[in-house]
Amino acid sequence: MSDRVDETASASRLGLARIRELLGVAIPPALVALGIILLWYGITHFVLEPDRRFLLPPPHEIVQEGILDGEVLAEILGGLYRTAMVAGLGLVIAFALGFSMALVMSQAKWIERSLYPWAVVCQTVPILALVPLLGFWFGFGLMSRVTVCVIIALFPIIINSLTGLQGADPRLHDLLTLHNAGRWTRALKLQVPAARPLIFTGLRTSAGLSVIGAIVGDFFFGRGQPGLGILLDRYSRRLRSEELLAAVIAACLLGVVAFWIFGVLGRRAVGHWDPSWADEKKN
């Protein structure tokens, strides 16, 4: 009995410690946010003359007109949803493609040498230059938007997966060789498990990039049902700075959430054995 009492006591102590830890993580950034909001009000009221105040309306007006106004909110949430779908789909395809490429490249030097330059090309291609061409080929709908995401998100996935797949301990490779492991066993039991931490690092980077791709694509294709990109364009043309800032905040939130999701997934998947993912604060 007394054991159990001790346990609950220590559990609640643990709970307290946990809460304290969370506060420690949450409070400093919250203070920064508070500082930024104060600075913002300061700029709106003391730096900008009244006739230029529309350039940076005070935060409460953004809340009023961008979030509390049902129509605008519905428009922004709709755009957020469509952009998130495009980014998500793009990321899934980029992962399937990028990981397969990395797996194939990790199997032989000559394959790596043949494919690597093309991976670099997709990293360095100015995506805006491709936009008209993609519209031309795939139309101005979902397909072109997703393609932009894939092109932008592909490289970090390839390069991180490849580094991970090639980074397995050479002595473990020796151990598998001694036990006559084939290529398939080697990939499945050694290379892929060893690569998981870097695969998640790549996914986390690419998730953010895919969001950017979805917004940029939407912005430039400019047709079809509006995502965040079209909304940003529309609000800025109409000088609706409250709505514009609300849409910007929505876009930032989407990027942060994408980053955060893969942080949590990575920590869940490999945090118990990989030191770089074990450190909670970094993720």
Partner: peptide
């Protein structure tokens, strides 16, 4: 030269698996 993603027991049974 252990596999960090495997527990002690899973490391020890590894060669049996192979």
């Amino acid at each position: 030269t252990l596999m960090p993603w495997r527990t002690v027991e899973q490391n020890v049974t590894f060669l049996g698996e192979l």
